[in-house]
Design a protein around this nucleic acid. Structure first.
Length: 447
DNA sequence: GGGACGCAATTGACGATGAT
DNA sequence: ATCATCGTCAATTGCGTCCC
């Protein structure tokens, strides 16, 4: 295994005192090392969590080189990257096309010299080409580029056309090199797309700048793109040098409630951070990913809209209701009872946990008997009621025969977040926000 | 010209609600 | 049903200006 320069806890502490000895908050830890910093993504799990868990289970002999790590909620691919760093194979699922592509881009190492050469090809003459687009636009001349199918009013011109020019260049690059290399550069374009759009910073739901701010928003496409390309190339070269080519990363554009591509008893460990709530009221992954996916990855608007509807607790009901889960978790039934008393959103909570339970069933199916699963969860609120997701996770898994081995508390990584919000949008009417998480570590039932 | 400093911008796992 | 909007907040980073 390669040396990890990012450790904040000594390995000796790990092996002598076990998982309880680790400070899982990882205050001040660098969360952007290697390819983790390739692209932002909402609600990323800090890489130190899978890093430390994998180190521990490798030291304990629960895992060995070449074993398989599975993440049913891959997101931007944190688990897959850490799996590779530890000489392990990875399987990953996500229903968000952008997540699938980011996971592949971040976890599959590329040849450093080839990346360098492709960067030169890509940037060569790009600056003047974009300048030409601008002058053509200003002169009112037609520009022969296919406009991305984004919604009206979300991008300045000619910047949107310039993004399309870069998109086409990367398509050319794909023909000259290969898909993996093109994918890697599309990540930088995706980043640029977000910066160029009228999307307001600090929002992962679609929220445009005010009309006034939109008039002032005149970003310079080339320097944003070039800088991100250079940063990413540098990160990929480091990642590539530090990781093995012997392992595989299988990323499935699939629903973890079915996990159809992952075989029974094929996985040695599961490390995942599921969504904490439905994609409508908590993190709207689909909304976040919409424009980047349409502009840089050629995805359809309708396909991207489906993401939030298909997420756990979303309006696309793919499973039959399962009332019994309320009996299987005391914490869940107490929560639903409180929500009913408050005349709150008990049905929404029920649908979310019904979907979540289906993923637990699949984790049981694919995980080898006796092997560990780590769920990283925090407790959101609904109708101002705190939802004890960590206890519900534990109890529903116990119903499936899993055994709890560790309940590891941690503070939410960046307390740059507000402690309070005002969801009713009434000045002075505030509510608490989530401040800590738990890592719920369990082992799969023995045969 | 470069370092110190102050202010602005950015960066974050919300969730109810009013308008379509 | 869906979607954009909004009130909430602090640590950190970025940027411009001033002073030496």
């Amino acid at each position: 295994m390669t040396e990890n320069p990012h450790q904040t806890t000594l390995d000796t502490a790990l092996t002598e005192s076990g998982l309880e000895a680790v400070n899982w908050t990882f205050p001040d830890a660098d969360t952007q090392y290697l390819t983790h910093g390739l692209h932002n993504y909402p609600a990323r799990m800090v890489p130190q969590i899978p890093d430390r868990l994998l180190s521990y289970y490798l030291d304990e002999g629960v895992l060995e080189e070449g074993d398989v790590v599975y993440d049913p909620f891959s997101g931007s691919g944190t688990t897959a990257v850490e799996a590779r760093r530890h000489d392990l194979n990875a399987e990953a699922n996500d229903i968000n096309p952008l997540a699938v592509l980011l996971t592949r881009a971040k976890s599959i190492p590329l040849d450093p010299e080839e990346v360098e050469a492709a960067q030169t090809t890509l940037l060569d003459g790009l600056k003047s080409r974009l300048a030409d687009v601008e002058s053509q636009y200003e002169a009112g001349e037609p520009i022969d580029v296919e406009e991305p199918a984004v919604r009206d009013g979300w991008f300045p011109e000619p910047q949107l056309t310039q993004l399309a020019v870069i998109r086409d260049r990367i398509d050319d690059l794909e023909r000259e090199y290969d898909q993996a290399l093109a994918r890697f550069f599309r990540v930088a374009l995706s980043h640029t797309t977000r910066k160029v759009s009228y999307q307001r910073n600090g929002e992962y739901k679609r929220y445009r700048l005010s009309e006034e701010d939109r008039e002032d928003h005149d970003p310079d496409v080339y320097p944003i793109f070039e800088q991100k390309v250079r940063e990413n190339v540098s990160m990929m070269k480091d990642y590539s040098r530090e990781t093995s080519r012997d392992q595989q990363t299988q990323v499935h554009y699939a629903d973890s409630r079915e996990a159809a591509d992952v075989e029974d008893d094929s996985v040695d460990i599961v490390i995942t951070s599921p969504p904490y709530g439905d994609h409508g009221t908590t993190v709207a992954y689909g909304q976040f990913s919409q424009d980047p996916a349409i502009v840089s990855w050629g995805r359809e608007y309708d396909e991207m809209r489906e993401v939030d509807k298909t997420g756990l607790g979303g309006s696309n009901r793919v499973l039959e209701p399962l009332e019994e889960i309320e009996e299987w978790s005391e914490a869940l039934s107490a929560t639903l009872e409180t929500l009913r008393e408050k005349d709150g959103r008990s049905d929404d909570a029920m649908e979310f946990f019904r979907d979540y339970y289906a993923v637990m069933e699949q984790v049981k199916r694919v995980l080898k008997p006796g092997q560990p699963v780590a769920w990283v969860v925090a407790n959101r609120t609904m109708s101002r009621v705190n939802i004890p997701t960590h206890l519900i996770t534990q109890q529903l898994c116990e119903h499936l025969g899993f055994e709890l081995t560790h309940m590891l508390p941690r503070e939410i990584p960046n307390k740059t977040l507000p402690w309070e919000n005002a969801p009713e949008n009434q000045p002075g009417v505030k509510g608490d926000l989530m401040a800590n998480e738990n890592i719920v570590v369990m082992t799969a039932p023995e045969e």
